[in-house]
Design a protein around this nucleic acid. Sequence first.
RNA 1: CGGGGCGUGGCGCAGUGGUUUAGCGCGCAUGGUUCGGGACCAUGAGGUCGUGGGUUCAAAUCCCACCGCCCCGACCA
Length: 584
Amino acid sequence: MTLLEVYGILYVMKFDKSLIATLREDPKEAESKSHRILLRGGFIKQIAAGVHIYLPLGWRILMKISNIIREEHDRIGAQELLMPAISPKEIWEESGRWKEYGDDMFRFKDRKDRDYCLCPTHEEIITEIARKRIRSYRDLPQIWYQIQMKFRDEKRPRYGVIRSRQFIMKDSYSLDRDEQGLDKSFNLHKEAYTKIFQRCGLDFEIVDAAGGLMGTGESKEFVARGEGGEATVIACKNCNYRANLEVAEGRGRFAEFEDSQVTDVHTPDKRSVEEVSGFLNVTPQNLVKSIFFTAVEKKPILILLRGDYDINEDIIKNRFGFSYETATPDEIIKYFGAEPGFIGPVGKDDIDIYVDELLKGARGMITGANKNNYHIRGLNLERDIKVKDYLNLRKVKSGDKCIKCQGELELYNGLELGHIFKLGTRYSEILGATFLDENGVEKPIVMGSYGIGLERIMAWACEQKGDEHGAVWPISITPYDIYVIVLNPLNKEIANAADDINQALTKGGFSIIIDDRDISAGIKFNDSELLGIPIRLTIGPKGMKSNKFDISLRETKEVFEVNKNLIADKCLELKDILYRRLNE
RNA sequence: CGGGGCGUGGCGCAGUGGUUUAGCGCGCAUGGUUCGGGACCAUGAGGUCGUGGGUUCAAAUCCCACCGCCCCGACCA
């Protein structure tokens, strides 16, 4: 017996002895395509909102994904380790995130009444390792990574495994002596990520992104196109500008209106842009929206935007501080003496007014009069109000022009599969992770942080490749290579032929599911499609007569009639073809 | 956290005060006939009707509270 024969047996799964539980009907809790397929195929099972069991089929997929990730990280010189899933409060208090994370953090106490959390991410822990271990510039650079459960008590888990409260993340951290080193580590990750998602057979793009809680350094998201994703990407049709809507900038068209004196106009109960423009019979472009932001212990700010654009709150928060929130109706009445919908900038020189650049030089505009049920006409921004600064504050719209090349911008939906950040020295400074350079000067380590959501890769392969019959796994992450259907398995001849073929396939190194359940053929065919195994082999009476058996491909439905003794060879060839087709 | 929906055998659902043993389809078990696209016959097992309280002679059904799940929004590496 060869080694392959010994170990080969591990690659065989008999359907009727497996923990595979396909559902005949769509589970009612699932609406999105990927969620439906994963539940129906028995890849996952939900046990609470945003908490899932990964059943054997799903787990095999995740293991395949982990291996790809592992290989590509090892290739860039990263070292795998495993950090704890729980950690004590103190280190999070040091970084300030015990507070900052708020209710999104799962917290608990041990028997001695000490506070702990389930780690939502691991910057603090990695920095703890770094500050103990890294002494000298000679110890740098380093890239450390792990594949680990993360816990976040999301306000609203949804779409099954896509936004869940417990999920598997590959997170890596780079440690460098300076910005140049960080650039290099950042780019290594960018390349590794590109290879990983390509190998997983997904269509994706690299887009500019916002840092959020992680900081304000450069960051890129790897976004895969698809409905039901949570990211909106702005893409230039002409050049390679790609950005998450959160940070996207575009050029809008200036709108001109006739200059005039400021006059009040009665607008009873008309508050929104739509209501006012409809009532006065003008285009929304003629309106100026006033949005009032307040923050504790900070000066309130008034933002002006043209009526046909929405505000980009992420820009506001990144620029002015994360504590800024849109003011409450009470605050608005207090500062403006009018209800929301009727406020405006005129006569508010005591408040800092920031204006979207598209309004620079605008005249003849309509805005709130700071008097209930009244607006004003004839606003001339330069003449009538004191502007603190003109900034790009609006959300890009489809049809805006690219800031790089003037090409037209379009929007699409997608899912963030991975995110790479330049953290800089934010954590190393607070937590005291430093090294001595060649001059003996103590410096903070320059860090980067990089994440990939494993389940999202699994779910998005369903979303992008799956069809009305079920999953279509890319060959690289499929739980099994071949689905062997044995029709009429009680027939001795057929059963014997199936044994021969399965042995040949096992020797060939394939992982296979054997479906020799004594049930009608349709169920087996349908299950093979639902499970999305890329290659299907059918052993039945028809093949017994001609000694030729059908091999078909899940994705293209191509069918090949293959002589019994050539089956393993053909499968090898097809597997090869499937690998080559991955990124076509 | 706001809005909407749902909770009845493993799954999908019906039943919305009064046939005492709560139904139907699928699945499951046993026997038999079938066997290249979700077959058929027969027999059978399986249910705290989300939880607690209340109204009533009588509650899956009406009332109150709570819990859980899904969807939209707010929010979010």
